[in-house]
Simulated scan of single mutants.
Amino acid sequence: MPVTVTEAAAKHVSKYLARRGKGVGVRLGVKTTGCSGLAYKLEYADEVAPEDLVFEDHGIKILVDPKSMPYLDGTQLDFVREGLNEGFKFNNPNERDRCGCGESFRV
C-alpha cells in the first residue's frame, strides 16, 4: 500500500518548502529507539536517493527508504492542530502499541 499525506499535511509541507526555497518533498523513515522499539523520522528532502521509494500525494513527494517500508506500509501523514500545539501525526495501520510518552511504537 502507498504512503500518503492528508490535504492539511500537504499544505504545511508545500508552505515550508516554499519558505525554505528548496526541497523535493519529505523523507519518512523509522529508527530503533524508545521504550516500544521504533520511532518515526521525518525530514525535508533536497534530493531523491537512488534507493528511495517515491510516493506522491496532493502534489507532495514522500520518500521512504526500503528498510523502513515494511513498518510504514499504508501510513498516512497528517498535520494536526490541538489547542496551542501543532505537528505531524502518523496514522499507521501496522502500529500495534505505542509507549506512554508517545515517542515510540511497536509493530
Rank of each mutant, 00 (worst) to 15 (best):
T4Q: 09
K22F: 12
K11W: 00
S14I: 00
G29W: 05
A9I: 01
R27E: 14
Y16K: 10
G21W: 12
V3D: 02
G25N: 08
Y16Q: 05
L17M: 13
V3K: 01
S14Q: 15
M1T: 14
H12V: 03
R27G: 11
P2K: 12
V3M: 03
A10L: 10
S14N: 14
R20N: 11
P2A: 15
V5E: 09
R19G: 12
A18W: 01
K22G: 01
A9Y: 12
A9Q: 11
L28H: 11
M1S: 15
R19C: 01
M1W: 05
V5I: 13
R20A: 08
A9L: 03
L28Q: 11
V26K: 07
A8T: 09
A8I: 00
K15A: 13
G29M: 07
K11Q: 14
A10S: 13
R20K: 15
A18D: 14
V3Y: 05
R19A: 15
A8Y: 02
T4H: 05
V3R: 04
Y16N: 04
L28R: 09
L17V: 05
R27Q: 10
A18H: 06
H12I: 00
S14K: 15
P2Y: 01
V24C: 04
V13D: 03
G29N: 12
G21Y: 12
T6A: 04
V3L: 07
A10T: 07
G29T: 06
E7Y: 06
V13P: 02
A18G: 00
K11H: 08
A10G: 10
K11C: 00
R19D: 12
G25K: 07
H12M: 14
R20I: 00
G29Q: 02
T4D: 06
K15N: 10
K15I: 00
G21N: 13
S14L: 05
V30I: 15
A18P: 00
A8H: 12
K22T: 09
A10D: 10
A18Y: 02
A18E: 15
V13F: 10
T6C: 03
V3C: 07
K22S: 14
H12Y: 14
L17H: 04
V30R: 05
V26D: 07
V13H: 01
V24E: 08
T4M: 11
G25V: 06
G25R: 06
R27M: 06
V24T: 08
V30T: 15
K22R: 15
V5Q: 04
K11R: 15
A8P: 07
A8V: 00
L17K: 02
V26T: 08
T6H: 01
P2C: 02
V13S: 02
P2L: 03
K22H: 15
R19Y: 10
